[in-house]
Design a protein around this nucleic acid. Sequence first.
DNA 1: TTCTTTACATGCAGTCTTGACTGTTTGTTA
DNA 2: TAACAAACAGTCAAGACTGCATGTAAAGAA
Lengths: 230, 230
Amino acid sequence: MPVPAEPQSQSASRLRRTQEERSTETRARLLDATIESLIDVGYAHTTTTAVCARAGLSRGAQVHHFPKKQDLVVSAVAHLATRRADELRGRAAELPAAASAEHRLGSLLSLAREALSGPLFLAALELWVASRTDVELHRALVRFERAAGRGLVDLWRDVAGPLADAARFDAVLELTMHLARGLALQQLLRRDDTARMRAFELWRELAIAALLHPSGAVPEPVSQPPEEDS
Amino acid sequence: MPVPAEPQSQSASRLRRTQEERSTETRARLLDATIESLIDVGYAHTTTTAVCARAGLSRGAQVHHFPKKQDLVVSAVAHLATRRADELRGRAAELPAAASAEHRLGSLLSLAREALSGPLFLAALELWVASRTDVELHRALVRFERAAGRGLVDLWRDVAGPLADAARFDAVLELTMHLARGLALQQLLRRDDTARMRAFELWRELAIAALLHPSGAVPEPVSQPPEEDS
DNA sequence: TTCTTTACATGCAGTCTTGACTGTTTGTTA
DNA sequence: TAACAAACAGTCAAGACTGCATGTAAAGAA
């Protein structure tokens, strides 16, 4: 039998890890490398070979855990959702206990904006665009993005506390998220942030005014006849 | 004399086209096919072979006019900018002469939103994302996108007429464009437009209020101390 | 220990895409 | 009509990426 030596009981067994430990760590390294690759070179240039090299593993390890490239990418979607949620929670925890309602709302708005910027947004953007021509990836993204959206709303309501009872609170938050995505998208072409930050400051003014002084100028809360299709 | 028929003045032969005519038509077909391909299958799956097939031409024709794939794509950027501008001007021309300032502003806001939606936006989005890892493409995009942005602002001011004198007019327009991009981006994951349209209706209310009744609640026009980095 | 399973490594074949090369048709000029 | 240039067509080789198949080490069970 070609079984030369049994190294069953490793004397200097500091390297000894359980299978599950090895497995989870390898998977995490592969998924992190995948996201990193998405950020660095984009979805199109994210090859399994390059991901393995980035993770410091062989292609065999990748094939073992994620037989098809799809498996790797779809799993990376879930991983990415987790990391984005973690980052968001971390930032939310750092929020200072602001004094005025205005200030607190402003911080919350900025929080929503930050949650949709940064490298992790770029990774998600790559996946969104790629999912346009990949139904399986699209399915995975919709599933996790929906959960992430709900998480963001819940977290926001949590931090907002009684402020969340303001009329049109949800609607303003939704607008803020859409706006944040648009701002982040513009980042692709213009790295300079100053103009965008100024624009967002204006939005903070308008949004806070709309939330705290709803008697401003708009009588109807939400519904109205959509007389024009546009 | 050995000059039988001077093709200089083409009498009836419609098949007989000058070199320039053939050339420009072929180039246009290739560029249109490229954009169509960007919309249909995305940048990653846009191969020169597929573009040729789509245009009903051979690979030789493509190679002749655009030796490298980069040449084809970069030229498509300019072509796309032209087509987007044309579409925008067309829609602007259809705008009815609205009675009230509110209504007119609302139409203009919707116009800005529409200008950043639709298939041509998808093509541009594919290029933006791709340009993240392609400096030459990025350069071309920045050049044309800047021109397109200015064109959009000018057109909007044109249509707006005296309304353009309102305080924060430009800032609100800029916010609207950012928001429109964010809305269009969300389209990738959720096809259903109703929620987004409702959100945009709210924005129209807020924006019109901010433009026509600037005494709402915000004292400062633009500048203010950026006490928080966010 | 012995056996089995899981984790990982390496090499290879098939497919796809690009860029280059050669050949043919159409238009222009002399 | 002849000569030339531009437009267009078809083929091919090199490189890259994926998926698979085979081989080895580590961990757990009997």
